[in-house]
Amino acid sequence: MSKKENFLKGFFKENPIFVFLLGMCPALAVTAVFETALGMGLLVIFVLTMSNIVVSMLRNVIPNDVRTPAYIVIIATFVTIVGMVSKAFTYDLYLALGVFIPLIVVNCLILGRAESFASKNKVLDSAIDGFGMGLGFTFALVVIGVFREFLSTGGIIWGEFLPFFVDQPVTLFSLDMIINLFNSDFVIADYALNMFSLAPGAFIALGIILALIQGKSARRIKKEIEIQKQRIVELKKVALAKKAAAAKLVKEAA
């Protein structure tokens, strides 16, 4: 596998959430708004990349029979660090994510990558794998977050939990902006589906997104099967034509 393939596999082909359904706990719990989803994703990228690097560095040193507790200690160290750093520099995000920051330790994606990839591969490859998988995880969280926030509020807000680039929260996008061009009294929040900010909404949103992805994937597979079938039919036709030609030759020779 090339380095590019190693990096990109986490986005679509082996996406932790959309394909392997790993790390579903944060995918459901912290994606009510786009910002918390992105924040959790960034923390996971750091933990996953760093733990993959350290596990890969120590892969020949850690005895096999204690590898899992050793990996857990390494992961827990980085989770503790991101917990402290987020508490110091993104305090609102820390409060919003709450217990889900320490729970990164038991995110099966992180231990899974340490066990299945980092413990068997070189440091650079492990770092690329961790970073790519982390980005894929973040991408999935952000997709769910945007979907849920948009449906539950009618817009997307930036600056409430991640205090970067803006002093006050700003609306990145809202349907109000478009509809108010025609009707000034319209408030999208009155028509938003609040359910999507709640726990049942998380399951429904994830279900819809997974259905869309699986639907697309199923169509692609169906198309591939059709192409393969056509190819087989063509090959059969060619084989039959060859057989017929051979039979004709035999007949003529006789």
Binding site: V61, I62, A70, I81, M84, V85, A88
Partner: peptide, 21 residues
């Protein structure tokens, strides 16, 4: 010894980050 070293390095890292934050 390996577990002790991992624990010690982890503790040291957490101590430094805690000191800063």
């Amino acid at each position: 010894l390996v577990l002790l070293l991992i624990g010690a390095v982890s503790g040291g890292l957490i101590y430094i980050v805690n000191d800063i934050t």
